[in-house]
Design a protein around this nucleic acid. Structure first.
Ligand SMILES: [Mn+2]
Ligand SMILES: [Mn+2]
Ligand SMILES: [Mn+2]
Ligand SMILES: [Mn+2]
Lengths: 219, 219
DNA sequence: ATTATTTTTTAGGTTTGTCTAAATTTTAAT
DNA sequence: ATTAAAATTTAGACAAACCTAAAAAATAAT
């Protein structure tokens, strides 16, 4: 089946929202897409007709199996393009999301196959998020935010959930990127701030807000 | 100013048509875009309001200076992407047009600047057509079709105007590509066919139709 | 258990880009 | 110079995707 740019954006947003809460609500989706609840309801009816989601009036909705498959293929395109933009074109990773938001809608399967080959089948995008494979299979990475990780345990940064320029600026300052090794040395209960030791650098303190946005691998 | 995908497609098509005939007609544009004359008239009014073209009812229309600039930036994006698809992703050049037709509308100047850097500032696309530079400057390549080139003169293939898979198949058979050196040895007036000698290969005969679609540099 | 608040849906409109059919203008043919 | 044909424009409609305002349903508060 074929989907419009708008439909694809809705499908992808529903997918992301239902990672957190199984059943998605009209308001949360409207908020995510920066649109009006009435518009969401309109689109839901369309997607229901296309048999992409389960929808019970006033209750909520979720993608069904084929909806998830569509979503994962959009996510795949998005993350492959992000990877391309950073590793090949030299973009910083706070600039790639908006562009990938457009590129993800270019609808040639052959293009994505060849792009994936060209990039040597990357498994994670520049923000550390896993790239679904051709068949829609996505690695489930067990993660924990720095705010929750045990003290004095060596961990590796897996992803960063806030991808704003301001966040990137701060991370550069702390010498933190995807793959960086670090360890939490002290936790301060007054403001939730955390002292960390990043590879060979002197220990430093990060705010609770920053700590909550940095995720590390967890077994 | 900002243009929709549809507007961009119209602008680019007008640009291409007015390379041949200064004043473009409604029917020819409708034919080019596979749409209806009435739709063309509608769009012309919109583009006129946006001060992109000169338009006299029932007479015809042409892009003005700023319209041409917009067109050239779309052509630039299209051809850079085609170059990328062939040289980096390994597409054959009969497959890239449709994909570039979508990619050209991704609207990030920074993306195109970086793509151009990444590709090392190519000056021609895979079909031999010149790529306009950042400022909209496009090389005017003097060309002559093989059907018109003088006999026994060594020439170099500059571009191929028919980009169908069938044409590509034939050209591969003849060992002809962009940059190939060849020379017309005999011209047969019965059917307009032409005997050519391609680099080190034995002479061969190409039909008038093929000859008319292959262009060579001309001083 | 009512009442108030919030969430969601419906009703009715707007914009963009398309279409068909009819009217108008231009061009070609007699 | 008329008439016929072709090209172009106008008129009116339609689908997609959005909106606001009002109605309906679900939740929360008294
Ligand atoms: Mn998008
Ligand atoms: Mn990402
Ligand atoms: Mn296009
Ligand atoms: Mn080309």
């Amino acid at each position: 089946m074929n989907f419009s740019v708008s439909e694809e954006n809705y499908i992808k947003s529903i997918y992301h929202l239902q990672q957190q809460t199984d059943l998605v609500t009209t308001n949360s989706l409207a908020n995510e897409l920066q649109t009006r609840p009435a518009s969401v309801t309109d689109m839901l009816k369309k997607l229901q007709v296309k048999k992409i989601l389960e929808y019970e009036k006033y209750k909520g909705f979720r993608l069904n199996a084929s909806g998830k498959k569509v979503a994962l293929s959009i996510v795949r395109r998005h993350r492959l393009w992000e990877y391309f933009l950073v590793t090949k074109l030299g973009f910083e990773w706070d600039k790639v999301h908006a562009i990938a938001e457009e590129l993800e809608h270019v609808s040639s399967p052959e293009l994505i196959r060849k792009l994936d080959d060209f990039l040597n089948h990357p498994t994670a995008d520049p923000h550390g998020d896993p790239i679904p494979d051709m068949h829609g299979k996505i690695a489930v990475i067990k993660q924990l935010s720095i705010a929750d990780v045990p003290e004095n345990k060596n961990v590796v940064v897996s992803s960063v959930s806030n991808q704003s320029p301001d966040m990137l600026e701060l991370l550069k300052h702390y010498h933190i990127g995807i793959g960086t090794g670090l360890k939490v040395t002290t936790r301060f209960s007054f403001d939730g701030s955390v002292e960390i030791k990043v590879s060979k650098y002197a220990p430093c303190i990060i705010s609770e807000l920053v700590a909550k946005n940095i995720f590390v691998y967890h077994d």
